Simulated scan of single mutants.
Amino acid sequence: MRVVEVTAYGGPEVLRMARRPEPEAGDVPGRVRVRLRAAGVNQADLRIRAGRYPGHVGDLKPPFVLGTDFAGTLMDPAPGMPAGTRVAGFVPWFDELTGEGTYAEVLRAAPEWLAPIPDDVDYTVAASVPLASATAQQGLDRLALPEGSTLLVTGASGVVGRLAVQYAAAAGVRVVAVAHEGDESELKLLGAEHSIERGTPEDVVARVVAAVPERVDAVFDGAFHSAPALAAVKDGGAFIALAADRTPTAERNIRVETVRGRPDAARLKETLEKVAARELITRVADVMPLEEVAEAHRRAEAGHRPGRIILMI
């Protein structure tokens, strides 16, 4: 089968197409095979490839296969889902550390990672959702904000931030969303009370304070602003970071935590059903063939356009 391997740590040029044996049914107990149709390009993929997580990859060394989000078709039956079911999910890559990711034609998956894809959701849309929705939901769970609290969501034009805006607004939280130019009106439709244009972290903080002079109760840092964004938080507030190397040091009694999404099939099933019903809106930025993975990484790193880049397999 075709895979994309990270041949060394570095820029997008280290990604290479390769061939590996296709997994056989039952070769890993408790795992089922999924023939992949789409895989998402996540920020974690870029950071792993660049070698920014040496303390988090254990003894794993190149060559290995990147990729977390996926959508495809079950090749083997799973509990409650016969072979042939369209499924989506994500690989908890840092927990597995097998070097077997989703930039491949076939994946061994744990059944508890998988949720069925509704008929009205295509593979590209489904592949944009799993890790983003888990990260947004579990980050908001950790914040545990009461109704009426104020939350700053940076990176709100991206998939994780966009879902965080929608989940938080649905819970009665007042959201200040930091958006790409042109996205302000849409984010207000999705539930943001205030939508401000992105900029340097210092510019963002100034705009937040202008909109919310008392400062916000918490930050969901989808844009990896890190320490500078703490200035937007009240004393004793909270801050959720999405990457270990972008987690600021706590100050002014602000609670700082890092969230890494964990698979939750029941929640993912509910989320995909809401996507099908247009009750939740995700965003696909580009759809590219697997062979163009290096260009996909370049576009993602350059902020080519907000949203998830999807690799078709």
Rank of each mutant, 00 (worst) to 15 (best):
I254L: 02
G237S: 07
V256A: 08
A243P: 01
E292C: 10
A296L: 12
F220E: 09
P213N: 10
K274W: 09
E214P: 00
D286M: 11
G236E: 07
D286P: 06
R283K: 15
I281R: 15
L242E: 03
A266F: 11
G222L: 06
T249G: 02
R246P: 00
T258I: 01
E273K: 11
L242A: 06
V233N: 02
A211V: 00
A302V: 03
T271C: 14
R278Q: 07
V287R: 15
R246V: 00
G261L: 11
L268S: 05
A277S: 08
V293D: 08
A277W: 05
L290W: 07
E291V: 15
K269L: 12
G236H: 07
D245L: 04
E292I: 12
P228Q: 07
A244V: 12
A300M: 13
F224Y: 11
A296N: 09
D235I: 12
R215H: 07
D286F: 15
T249M: 02
M288F: 02
V233F: 00
K234L: 09
D245E: 13
A300Q: 13
A276W: 09
R260V: 15
T249I: 05
A250N: 03
E257M: 14
N253D: 14
V287F: 05
A227H: 09
K269N: 12
A302T: 03
T258N: 10
E257K: 10
A238H: 09
A266H: 12
A231T: 08
A294E: 09
V284A: 14
I240E: 02
G261H: 12
V287Q: 12
R299P: 04
H225K: 01
R283V: 11
V256T: 10
R246N: 03
L290M: 13
E292P: 06
V284N: 13
R299S: 09
V216Y: 06
E270W: 13
L230W: 05
K234W: 08
R246Q: 05
I254W: 03
G237W: 04
V219A: 08
